[in-house]
Design a protein around this nucleic acid. Structure first.
Length: 306
DNA sequence: CTCCAGGGATGAT
DNA sequence: ATCATCCATGGA
């Protein structure tokens, strides 16, 4: 397939992929290689457009014989372009979203710093499973765990001579063992990931069917899964269920809220912060949260950005 | 070496 | 309802 040319205004590919919402894209040449669901993609940004290559990524022993029976699953150019546009959420009204942010000094700084950062649409299971692995882990280590899970349990595919592994299916992880997961560096999270995979695989929980639930009901369902609490539920809602108001509060965001919005306050409970966030950041709160998170990490620390 | 990380589950106040 | 503690692991 030839390279796709996709218009992408108000978009920063590198910052979006390095902002701690997705953990598997790898820098290759002037762009990035990664999986979009069961497809593999190479994406490179040039100004206001993306140059992309998308394939089903199935390894073929012989490519010389492109007979009439094309391999099923190989996306057409139009389908591939839609896949990329949808994954990177190029349809989100980013200008409107940024204008909705409260005019704090800090929020203004974060908005300027994160120009072009978008909340992408990730597959539900992949997103939830990855964030179950994220508890008490640095971003660099989450990337390492994601890579280990993909290499051991995922399907090996190729794009531009580069190996890309899809995220393992629910069934594949449900049929593994805690011992094998421990070898991927999951530590105490292995038990939770395995239990959640099995609960979904058995049909006891159905991530896709929850798409129509209200925010509150969806959050409640997610929190019933092993290893999923309020924070990880909000991450899954924000990054995989298009609930753009969801406001995950991790250690970074908690620091920001305490210092910036609860300065000189004795007791600040999680409930207070959640209530404040919902009121203060509005219906695009998830975006505000991601901008505050990325800005805080990139300005309060050195290194770690590639 | 120590410190800390996109937390959650559990049991005690 | 809020709080203390423990849970494995490895990058910084």
């Amino acid at each position: 397939m030839r390279d796709l040319e996709i218009r992408a205004h108000d978009f920063d590919l590198r910052m979006t992929l390095n902002s701690g919402q997705v953990f598997h894209w790898e820098k290759v040449g002037a762009g990035f290689c990664g999986a979009i669901g069961d497809c593999v993609a190479y994406v490179e940004q040039r100004g206001n457009s993306l140059r992309a290559k998308v394939e089903d990524g199935v390894l073929r022993s012989r490519r010389r014989n492109k007979g009439p029976a094309r391999m099923a699953g190989s996306p057409t150019a139009a389908t591939a372009a839609q896949l990329v546009q949808n994954y990177f959420a190029l349809d989100h009204p980013l200008e409107e979203i940024c204008e909705s942010f409260p005019p704090d000094g800090l929020m203004n700084s974060a908005r300027a710093f994160c120009s072009g950062l978008r909340i992408i649409r990730q597959p539900k299971w992949e997103c939830l499973a990855t964030f179950i692995c994220s508890s008490m882990k640095q971003v660099a280590h989450i990337r390492q765990i994601s890579r280990a899970l993909r290499q051991r349990f995922g399907e090996k595919k190729q794009i531009r001579e580069h190996d890309v592994f899809s995220f393992p299916s629910v069934g594949r992880l449900a049929r593994t063992s805690e011992t094998e997961l421990l070898q991927c560096g999951l530590g105490y999270r292995a038990k939770n990931l395995l239990a959640t995979a099995r609960r979904i695989d058995s049909g006891e929980a159905d991530l896709n069917s929850w798409s129509t639930l209200s925010d509150g009901e969806l959050r409640e369902r997610l929190c019933q899964l092993p290893g999923v609490g309020i924070k990880i539920a909000n991450c899954a809602m924000l990054f995989a269920y298009e609930r753009i108001a969801a406001f995950p509060i991790d250690v970074w965001i908690e620091r920001v809220l305490r210092q910036e919005y609860f300065a000189r306050r004795r007791k600040v409970t999680g409930q207070m912060m959640a209530k404040f966030a919902a009121d203060h950041f509005g219906r695009y709160g998830g975006y505000a949260q991601q901008y505050l998170f990325h800005h805080a990490r990139m300005t309060r620390k050195r290194g770690d950005n590639k």
